[in-house]
């Protein structure tokens, strides 16, 4: 069962970096208090900082993981253990749709759900956000080779209406929603796109 051991290691890696990411998120959110220029590249950069704070929130980051999703605000490894599998939906008798409903959160069992039948899944391997710096996250997000071929308009649409994105604002149970109103977030994305999708260096 050496495969299991290597899996343990990749989980440990994710777990170790989780706290650091939370700290970075907090610092990002609390460092942006001053007056800033709201146009062009500087505006895009400022907007990006807010966007990054959302993307690095547990509601988003927990499923943008290498092989195993995390759960909850404490960001524990998903119990029971599930792995990505060839189609990002799990393996064998352990597939995301076994428990996660398309119609929404199940408030009896506590299992979150959204988006319609069979949508719940791990983000694609090209979109691993865990442990990335804000700049690297930004460059990954706008890279059409990695973001599912989305240009700026498509990214705005994705953030505006993709059910799994929207779930971050309606996570059910005692999960903390993404800490910024959805319309403000979409406005930040629009500002970032309008400003040329500038990324921190």
């Amino acid at each position: 069962m050496t495969g299991w051991i290597s899996l343990c290691r990749s989980i440990a890696k994710a777990g170790l970096s989780a706290g650091a990411v939370l700290l970075a998120t907090w610092l990002t959110l609390h460092a942006q208090q001053g007056t800033i220029d709201r146009s062009g590249a500087p505006a895009a950069l400022a907007a990006w900082d807010h966007i990054a704070g959302v993307l690095q929130h547990p509601r988003c980051l927990n499923c943008h993981q290498e092989n195993v999703p995390l759960q909850g605000d404490m960001r524990r490894v998903h119990i029971p253990l599930v792995v990505r599998g060839p189609d990002n939906h799990g393996v064998g008798a352990m597939r995301c749709g076994n428990c996660h409903n398309g119609s929404g959160n199940n408030e009896t069992s506590g299992t979150p759900g959204a988006g319609g039948p069979g949508l719940w899944q791990l983000a694609p391997s090209s979109m691993l956000w865990q442990g990335l710096s804000s700049g690297d996250l930004c460059r990954m997000l706008k890279d059409t080779a990695r973001n599912g071929g989305r240009d700026g308009a498509k990214l705005i649409e994705h953030m505006e209406s993709e059910p799994l994105v929207l779930w971050g604002w309606n996570p059910g149970g005692d999960r903390t929603p993404v800490p910024m109103p959805h319309d403000e977030f979409v406005n930040e994305v629009k500002t970032w796109v309008a400003g040329g999708m500038t990324c921190p260096s």
Partner: peptide, 12 residues
């Protein structure tokens, strides 16, 4: 496909 009946809702 295996599914957990305690989590899948009737409507789904």
């Amino acid at each position: 496909q295996a599914a957990r009946a305690c989590s899948i809702m009737v409507g789904d």
